[in-house]
Design a protein around this nucleic acid. Structure first.
Lengths: 101, 101
DNA sequence: ACAACGATTAGACAATTAGCTAATTGTCAT
DNA sequence: ATGACAATTAGCTAATTGTCTAATCGTTGT
């Protein structure tokens, strides 16, 4: 859980995830979209992978990164849920139930 | 946004927020619930405050911390929303609409 | 076999972080 | 004004982070 939020705390990594939302992409392809060196991007990929937010698939010389939406969902909505956030509007209570608020 | 996720990336700080969910609490009261020194806790409070996740209210010798749910909500659900997460199931589209996916 | 290419690892560096103890500030009651 | 108490600031250390360049590893095409 900490790993996910740590991963999300960097703007570059958040943008990578947003790009991946549109579909899988190669490391170099992703790296080209950012103004930092490829080794730096590789480090970012490792953080994302460590958090379970992305998975890899090797294809020839390339490495394809995939977004793991479920992990993102579990962390974000799971934590939000602990605060009653993002919940379906609670069913209205009857007058009887309301007597014990 | 980065500040919020950075703040959430520490388990102690996440727990502080969870405690604050039940209602406002003094610094020392919060600090007593964790196995670290008070100055360390004070630093954590500063991080939470910098992210806008908590506000303070001074009361005599004490400082009372309040949770800012709206900031948490905006960050968590805002980002989740960018991935189509935590959304009400989208209305079903008619056959005509489906022709242009 | 070898050169070229995509990607990662190795190693270095400055900046940041979480933690501590000791010192300081601010408020209240005596 | 003094003492007690809540909280923060100051100053330190060890560990982690983001970034770089240079070197290495794997795969493909000649």
């Amino acid at each position: 859980m900490s790993d996910v939020f740590k991963a999300l705390s960097d703007p570059t990594r958040r943008e990578v995830l947003q790009m991946l939302k549109a579909g899988p992409r190669s490391a170099g392809d992703l790296a080209d979209a950012f103004p930092v060196s490829k080794p730096t991007m590789s480090a970012h990929f490792n953080v994302l992978r460590g958090a379970g937010l992305v998975s890899i698939e090797k294809a020839g010389k390339s490495v394809i990164y995939h977004l793991n939406v479920s992990v993102l969902e579990e962390a974000l909505l799971g934590f939000a849920g602990a605060f009653g956030l993002g919940q379906r509007p609670p069913a209205k209570r009857s007058k009887e139930e309301k007597e014990t608020p």
